[in-house]
Design a protein around this nucleic acid. Sequence first.
DNA 1: CGCTAATCTAGAACAAGTTTCAGACTTGAT
DNA 2: ATCAAGTCTGAAACTTGTTCTAGATTAGCG
Lengths: 205, 205
Amino acid sequence: MPAEASTSRPASPLTERQEARRRRILHASAQLASRGGFDAVQMREVAESSQVALGTLYRYFPSKVHLLVATMQDQLEHMHGTLRRKPPPGDTAAERVAQTLMRAFRALQREPHLADAMVRALTFADRSVSPEVDQVSRQTTAIILDAMGLADPTPEQLSAVRVIEHTWHSALITWLSGRASIAQVKIDIETVCRLIDLTEPAGRG
Amino acid sequence: MPAEASTSRPASPLTERQEARRRRILHASAQLASRGGFDAVQMREVAESSQVALGTLYRYFPSKVHLLVATMQDQLEHMHGTLRRKPPPGDTAAERVAQTLMRAFRALQREPHLADAMVRALTFADRSVSPEVDQVSRQTTAIILDAMGLADPTPEQLSAVRVIEHTWHSALITWLSGRASIAQVKIDIETVCRLIDLTEPAGRG
DNA sequence: CGCTAATCTAGAACAAGTTTCAGACTTGAT
DNA sequence: ATCAAGTCTGAAACTTGTTCTAGATTAGCG
């Protein structure tokens, strides 16, 4: 069995041609998503664009949602790299986290359709995609902890981070579906980031 | 045109038979959802169960997501009534909100498949369902403000409520997809509710 | 009652995700 | 170089959400 869309551990090491196929598929997926969002990523088209038979596509990614979540892993990795190179300048952890998320948000605004495809897939994913979604979640957590500048967070801090992630995902959805403005998302992010102040300065409970 | 799945204002008043059809449809939807979640709500089956032609079903609810969001409105109304009758006993606003949400959560735990169908529909909804999703959001906001005991919330408090709703939805999703335990959801809810303390006692900023 | 417009029904048809299958091609081991 | 096992291809089939159509029914009105 080839890779299960898990970036970090290919179940069996892919051959070069397989790796190339996988990249072509992810590229086609991102490209189609950028055009028209979730609905525009049609499996037949992805297969055709990436020069792969439909059955092969399904062997690499067992469903459309798996494919889009893998696409998101891909993009997230890229973003984490970018953010690492230019860490946010804020004075407090809360500020830095808010700045980091706003930076990510601005990146998403540049490709709103792609954002739509990825986020919708992420929240629509059922149990069969849990491992992959979890990986995305861990990656997001890592980005936030990086911004906080923490190596060894307390349980309270981890709770705060989880709540921040919840808010981040849900706020994105309200923005993507046109129910919240960009300004609104910004406020929500800043609001939830205040939770960090609640856990940081005080000692453990 | 008949009702657009908006509980509060039927575009044109439905006849008795139409009202009955609408109820049959919602009932069938909830029943099927209770059995097998989102996937088990199949439009043909809903139509058959509710003794209505497929075309009619689509006239009442223009998509599966519309149908499930309307189902959620229905359930939410019921729950708001229940909660009103037995307000939570906590001393602080934060406590009462957390208790209220945990009560709702326990109700959902009794019908996890139904919860799955409703929540997945809610977060998967695209722009065409925005009005209905917004209505659900307003209803949820009303429930939380009720628990806080506030008639005239400040903008900060409204922000906190929005963040609480974000957390609520997203935490439910992680639970439904098996990526978070019940205990975890409880912690997240309690964590986010602390935001209320941040806005309540202090005066306006 | 008798008319007209709107609504409802049954069922076919279409669209896109997913599955399946027979045959061609690769790969790895001997 | 050759064989077996695994992989890829192309195409059809299947599933379920959605749309469409022609004819039957119903509601409102004079």
